[in-house]
Design a protein around this nucleic acid. Sequence first.
DNA 1: TTTATATCCTACTAAACCAATCGGAATTTG
DNA 2: CAAATTCCGATTGGTTTAGTAGGATATAAA
Lengths: 141, 141
Amino acid sequence: MHIMVDLARHADEGPISLKSVAERQKLSEHYLEQLVPELRKAGLVKSIRGAQGGYVLAKKPENIYIGDVIRVLEGPIAPVECTNQSGEDCCEKTDFCVNREVWVKVRDSINDVVDSISLADLLKDAGNPESEGMNLFEEVD
Amino acid sequence: MHIMVDLARHADEGPISLKSVAERQKLSEHYLEQLVPELRKAGLVKSIRGAQGGYVLAKKPENIYIGDVIRVLEGPIAPVECTNQSGEDCCEKTDFCVNREVWVKVRDSINDVVDSISLADLLKDAGNPESEGMNLFEEVD
DNA sequence: TTTATATCCTACTAAACCAATCGGAATTTG
DNA sequence: CAAATTCCGATTGGTTTAGTAGGATATAAA
């Protein structure tokens, strides 16, 4: 999420190196290197190799939903494993199908939320601290 | 959840031993022994010690919500830790407050779901397999 | 063509969490 | 007293997540 938000925020500056993302987001470059190939394979970012290379969003921030990012990096969003399976495979434990009703509702509700928020929405809500010097959570003193 | 559903289903039979719950739910009695004291401390079940003892629901199934059960056994329901804290403590990572918006919405949506379903709702939806011989997920062949 | 800047790739480590196990003490009924 | 049952503390094994390590490959610019 940090990577994607950072890329969205600097979308007009050409390729963004992981090094600069890591500095701004206070994360290890090596750690980001481990994550970003997944985003690339999933078609969310494009890579430009070599000097002055880096990453750019593959689509406009308006068209990239938080749910896509999460699912790429963490797999299907589900509170329990059996909500990813068809109903028949999951219920050796007698009452689990009763409970499964709950988990399916939870799963759908989570996915509805994350699929309704785009990167553009996030930047809009928060303003752009770096260019405008403001932050939603900044205390006024 | 298995324990609570089982107790709800046998609510009119006096104290229910963990042994019988474990057999019906195909779970280890020892495992349940580890969980149920939390439910007792939280006032969701009452215990009767000694021979012919066991557990009973402390309230009517209509008044016990799934969210209460989950929170007792697993702590606050939150997709990331910082949604349990006030906004100031959580954001050494520059963009985290932007993302926090998402997690707060996810958290609230999950809690809304689990706080809207009672044990009674679950039993009603699923019928009572043991007394009626039916099951939502049973194939017709 | 060399060099610096990047991505790319494959392991490995450390900590936390969850389900489950083990052994035994305390309480109550019959 | 004896059996049934709750109660309690310690431990284990598996999985997941964040993060580290080291080096190979590609490209732009000097």
